[in-house]
Simulated assay, not measured.
Amino acid sequence: MATQTRSKPDTNLHEGLDQLNSTYRRPACATAAEAIAEWGTIREAATRRAVSTKTIRRYIARGLVQAERFGPRLIRVNLASLDAVGHSLASDAL
Rank of each mutant, 00 (worst) to 15 (best):
T31Q: 07
P9E: 14
Q66K: 13
R48H: 11
R48P: 02
A50H: 11
R6V: 09
F70T: 04
L74A: 08
T11S: 05
I42D: 01
A61F: 00
L82S: 06
L79Q: 12
R57G: 00
K8R: 06
S22C: 07
P9V: 12
L17W: 10
A50W: 05
L13R: 10
K8G: 03
Q66Y: 13
A33T: 08
N21G: 05
W39P: 00
C29S: 15
K54R: 15
R49L: 10
A80M: 03
E44Y: 14
V77C: 05
H87D: 07
Y59T: 01
S52V: 13
H87M: 10
A45D: 03
R25V: 10
D83N: 13
E68T: 08
L82P: 01
C29R: 12
N21W: 12
G40L: 07
A2R: 08
G40P: 05
L64S: 10
I42R: 01
E44C: 06
K8A: 04
A61W: 00
L17R: 14
L64Y: 14
T23W: 08
E15H: 01
I42Y: 02
D18F: 10
T5H: 15
L79I: 10
C29K: 08
V85S: 11
I60Y: 00
H87K: 12
S7M: 09
G86N: 08
G63A: 01
R57H: 00
R62G: 06
N78E: 01
P9S: 10
E44A: 14
N21L: 11
A67F: 06
S91I: 15
A84R: 13
V65F: 07
S52E: 12
S88A: 12
Q4T: 08
S81L: 05
V85F: 09
N21Y: 10
A61Q: 07
V65E: 02
S91M: 11
S22D: 13
L79K: 09
S22K: 15
A2V: 04
A32D: 07
I56L: 04
T53C: 06
T53H: 02
D10F: 04
L13G: 03
R57A: 03
V51P: 00
T47E: 15
L13S: 08
R73T: 07
E15T: 04
R76Y: 06
N12T: 09
P72S: 08
K54V: 11
T47M: 10
V77H: 03
M1I: 09
L64V: 04
V65C: 07
I42L: 06
H87S: 13
G40S: 11
E34L: 09
